[in-house]
Design a protein around this nucleic acid. Sequence first.
DNA 1: AAAAAACTTGACCGTATGGTCAGATATGTA
DNA 2: TACATATCTGACCATACGGTCAAGTTTTTT
Lengths: 212, 212
Amino acid sequence: MVSNTVSFHKFAKRSQNQKIILAAAEKVFAEAGYAGATTQLIADVANLPKANIHYYFKTKEDLYRQVVYNIFDIWMEAASAFDTELGPREALSRYIDKKMDLARTHPYGSKVWATEIIHGAPIIQDYLEGQLLEWSQDRSKHIQRWIENGEMDSIDPAHLLYMIWSTTQHYADFGHQIETLNAGKPYSDAQWQIAKLSVKTIILKGIGLTPS
Amino acid sequence: MVSNTVSFHKFAKRSQNQKIILAAAEKVFAEAGYAGATTQLIADVANLPKANIHYYFKTKEDLYRQVVYNIFDIWMEAASAFDTELGPREALSRYIDKKMDLARTHPYGSKVWATEIIHGAPIIQDYLEGQLLEWSQDRSKHIQRWIENGEMDSIDPAHLLYMIWSTTQHYADFGHQIETLNAGKPYSDAQWQIAKLSVKTIILKGIGLTPS
DNA sequence: AAAAAACTTGACCGTATGGTCAGATATGTA
DNA sequence: TACATATCTGACCATACGGTCAAGTTTTTT
């Protein structure tokens, strides 16, 4: 219907421009940091006049908030790959795979998250204390049960999680260093495969499992 | 004052003030990023007037350079703990220990390094292409030899190094997140011991070694 | 003692930044 | 068509920043 189409477009316009701006902002925040990211540069990358950015996002901080929230949501959704029904080998294997994929497909997001945490999480502290804490505690409990059932070695679950997070996100956050040590070239598909396999192999074997 | 005290101070004065400024700058750069770190704030932390900062360091960038260089030097010195004469178990074990110790004692430095890399290493690219590349290639060769001698599992040496770097530095860079998930409290001595042991155990076992 | 060198600092300056706003234009509604 | 609402944008502003400088004070040298 007419009114349907109209209101669809009315919506699309707004959300589409917001998407363009958010993508530009993610990239600029990742590469320049919060303070170093100028609204002018974000506008240039988004190919829009600066005043237009402020039409859709009241302040630079609002825009930054949105960017960080988006990343957290993506990670939280990926975290559901850590399906504790599957048992340790399959659950961890899938989770690591998923995190490695995100390191490749969403490096900017990972970088923004990393600097946010490094700077003391001024914006997303509530997320750390809420959703992340809850999720971590829940998964830790399951890991603990696996250990008690003799399904894997006895390891403090928190440190296992930190190892998975740090190792996988390293391929996004330190991508520039990795590229430099790789003759200045970004990883090929084959190299990403090897990276994924190496990470999975060491971690799974390291806690007493055989990789799938 | 006695003359030898005076002449002791003569020397100490310059380098001592520089040290105070460098320490303040390291902290501020770590917590606010390069662009977010104002010379005024560095001056306040150092408890000196802003103009005095510029007397010892010509520009903010010079100061930043010094900070990053210092960290790199400290890490490179620690890298000598990776003594390939010792064989894989002892060499890797000592290197991980050393890196964990530095994560605890030099968290600001680690954070500055991390953001520098995340932002594409605008300042220290030459170090990456020089010393770091050289060191990595040298150690990779030794790891390769261990593998060929059947002293450890067959793993791409680069990924083993990345795992050690990422995991250990995570305890510095993401210290805020770790603290938040630790009931808001920093790690105790005992908790650091467990962290070190967990990391060593998983990595060493993960590549087919028994922890020492 | 006096000249030189090193250090300290408040006041100042040009620039770049985040944000505003009024007016123009496009889009949807009746 | 006439009206209303959403979108766009150049020009503008107050503020905060890195850096300078001249006038001082302290320290070292002769």
